[in-house]
Computed example of a mutant assay.
Amino acid sequence: EENFESKERTACRGKIAISDIRIPLMWKDSDHFSNKERSQYYAIFCLFKLGAEVFDTEMVIVDKTVTDICFENVTIFNEAGPDFQIKVEVYSCCTEESSITNTPKKLAKKLKTSISKATGKKISSVLQEDHEMCLSFSSAIYGAKYSLLAHTTLSLESAEDSFKTHNLSVNGNEESSFWLPLYGNMCCRLVAQPTCMAENVFAGFLNEQQMVGGLIHWRRLYCVLRGGKLYCFYTPEEIEAKVEPALIVSINKETRIRAVDKDKTKRIHNFSVINPVAGQAVIHIFSADNREDLQKWMEAFWQHFFDLSKLTFGFSSSIFM
C-alpha cells in the first residue's frame, strides 16, 4: 500500500504580480513650496529580482512638487515557489537643470538609458547576488549615475489582493547626490496565483454512489480537480460547452478522504469524500474504474492537500488575464 500522506512532496509553483507601487516623499515645506528657477530633478526606477530573473520598471522623473513616486508597471514572475523572496531595489539619479524649460517630460527623454529598456539577462550580468549596496549604473549621458536609494524584500506573507505597506531600507543621507526624503515605506499590490488553483490538477471518470428509493445507484461522471473543488460533469464535452457541473464537491483543508471497504456490489475501488457542513458530515462516495485510477486520484488529492496547506493567502486571477 502506498502511503500518500507521508510521501515527501514539493509544493506547486505559481505566478506573482507586483503592481501599483507608491513611494511617499516627505519634502520640507520650504522645499516643497519653493518655486526657484533652478530645480533639481531625480530620475527613479525599480528593479525586481527573483533568483536569476530580473525585471525593471519604467523610469519616472520627480522634483520637489511631487509627493509620491508612482510606478504604473505590472511585473509578473511566472515560476515562483511558495518560499519566494523578491528583492526590490529603488535606484535614483539627481540632475540639476538651470532652465525651467527642461520639463520632467523632456528630461525623462534625455535621461532614458538602456537600463529602463534592458532585459533581465543584460542586467543580471551586472547584478551579482553579493553586489555592494552602493552599486550604481552609469548611463549613456555623461554624469548620469544611478545609485541604490532603497531596498526591501517581498515574500509570500506580503501576498494578498490588496494594497499593503512594506518597510524600505534607505541608503545614503542628505549629503548624497541621489538622496530623496523617503518616509521609509513603499505601498504596492502583490498578488499570487498558484498553478494548482488556476489549472486542472487531475481529471478523469469516476462513478458517484446515489441512494434512490433505498437502493444504491451509480452515476458516471467526468471529474476535474481544480482550485480546492472537484467539478463533476456527465461528459468532458460539457466543460468545453461551459455547462454547469452536475456536482461540485469541496476539496480543502477540512476535507477527509478515506478508502471504503469492499461492498456487496463488488466495486472495490471506492473512496469517500467527507466535508463538515454546518456541524454535519456530508459524505460523497466515488468509485474508480480500477486500482491504478484509484491510486492516481489518491495521489492527486494528497498533492492538492499539500499545496493548499502552503497557501496562506488569497489569490486573484484578474491581474493575470
Rank of each mutant, 00 (worst) to 15 (best):
L111T: 06
V66Q: 08
N3S: 14
H217F: 11
R22C: 04
D307N: 15
P104V: 04
V224Q: 04
Q209M: 13
I18Q: 08
V243M: 09
V191M: 12
I61E: 01
E53A: 14
D293F: 06
K28C: 05
N270R: 14
I86R: 03
W179E: 07
D63L: 02
W297R: 07
K296E: 12
F48N: 02
G184C: 02
V243T: 10
K64C: 13
V260M: 14
I248C: 13
Y42W: 15
L50V: 05
F313Q: 12
S39Y: 06
Q295S: 10
R267W: 04
S317P: 02
E157S: 09
A288F: 09
S162L: 07
T119L: 11
P276C: 11
F320D: 10
R38V: 14
P181C: 02
G51E: 09
S116P: 00
D83H: 09
G227Q: 05
M298L: 13
S162Y: 07
L168N: 00
K164P: 00
L154W: 05
V74P: 00
G184L: 00
A198K: 09
E208K: 10
P181F: 02
N73Y: 02
A150L: 08
M197R: 07
A246E: 05
C12A: 15
Q295E: 13
D161V: 09
E208Q: 15
K106D: 14
S98H: 11
E129V: 03
T75W: 04
Q85R: 15
S124F: 05
P236L: 01
I268K: 15
D307H: 13
K296C: 08
I216T: 15
P24S: 12
R22I: 00
V260L: 10
R258D: 04
I257W: 07
G228A: 13
M321A: 11
G120C: 12
V66T: 15
D130M: 05
H131Q: 07
H304T: 10
L149Y: 10
G172Y: 02
M133Y: 07
E5K: 13
G314M: 09
I141C: 06
P82L: 06
A118N: 08
Q295I: 01
V88N: 04
V126G: 00
G314Y: 04
G120T: 12
S317Q: 14
T152A: 12
I18W: 07
A140N: 12
V282K: 05
A140Q: 13
L182W: 03
Y183S: 06
M133P: 01
H304P: 05
L190Q: 12
E244S: 15
T67W: 11
S309Q: 03
Q280D: 08
L154F: 09
Y42R: 15
I283D: 03
G184W: 04
S92W: 02
I61N: 01
V126W: 02
S155G: 06
E240A: 03
F306V: 08
F301I: 11
T165C: 10
R226F: 00
Q210M: 06
M321K: 08
I257L: 09
N275E: 06
D161W: 02
L149R: 00
